[in-house]
């Protein structure tokens, strides 16, 4: 099932979801939600460095730190309230799937990756758009930083 075009750490998550039944996929998303780390202090103290992803139903804030060329490794930081577990779960998947990768690899991730988690039926297409928007926002911010 593993797609060659996906970074390995993201492909593994997609496989993990695909191996499960639908209710268990929701449970896995909840695990990602619970596992989303707190923001580091430097971002907590500077909320202006975070940007809201308005396409998400619940407030989600996102920040990127991009390292030196040529690799330009990308580090991601997300913040969403505990009463928004779905949003937190999406953020957790993207964090584990993308964090630390070179900018070019993230830009090459297909936009439809959220649809490959097999959650669309249980979560509905409307809500899945929130995750697609998050990925889009990450890519946009990488492109904006590109000189």
């Amino acid at each position: 099932m593993t797609d060659e075009t996906l970074p390995r750490q993201l492909a593994e998550i997609v496989d993990d979801f695909q191996d499960l039944t639908e209710p268990d996929r929701l449970q896995l998303l909840l695990d990602f939600s619970r596992g989303l780390p707190e923001l580091p202090a430097r971002l907590k103290e500077h909320p202006e460095l975070l940007e809201q992803v308005v396409e998400c139903q619940s407030p989600l804030f996102l920040s990127l730190e991009i390292g030196e060329a040529p690799e330009r490794p990308v580090h991601l930081f997300f913040s969403a309230p505990p009463e928004a577990p779905t949003t937190r779960g999406f953020a957790g998947v993207l964090l584990e799937g993308l964090d630390g990768l070179p900018a070019a690899k993230i830009l090459a991730v297909p936009d439809d990756v959220p649809d490959r988690l097999g959650l669309t039926r249980a979560i509905t297409p409307l809500r899945m758009r929130g995750m697609t928007a998050m990925l889009g926002k990450i890519k946009r911010k990488i492109r904006e930083s590109d000189g």
Binding site: L26, Q27, L29, L30, S33, Q57, S58, P82, E83, A84, P85, T86, T87, G89, A122, I123, T124, R127
Partner: peptide, 9 residues
């Protein structure tokens, strides 16, 4: 709920 996972928490 609005959030489809909130019940599960």
């Amino acid at each position: 709920d609005e959030d489809v996972l909130l019940y599960e928490t």
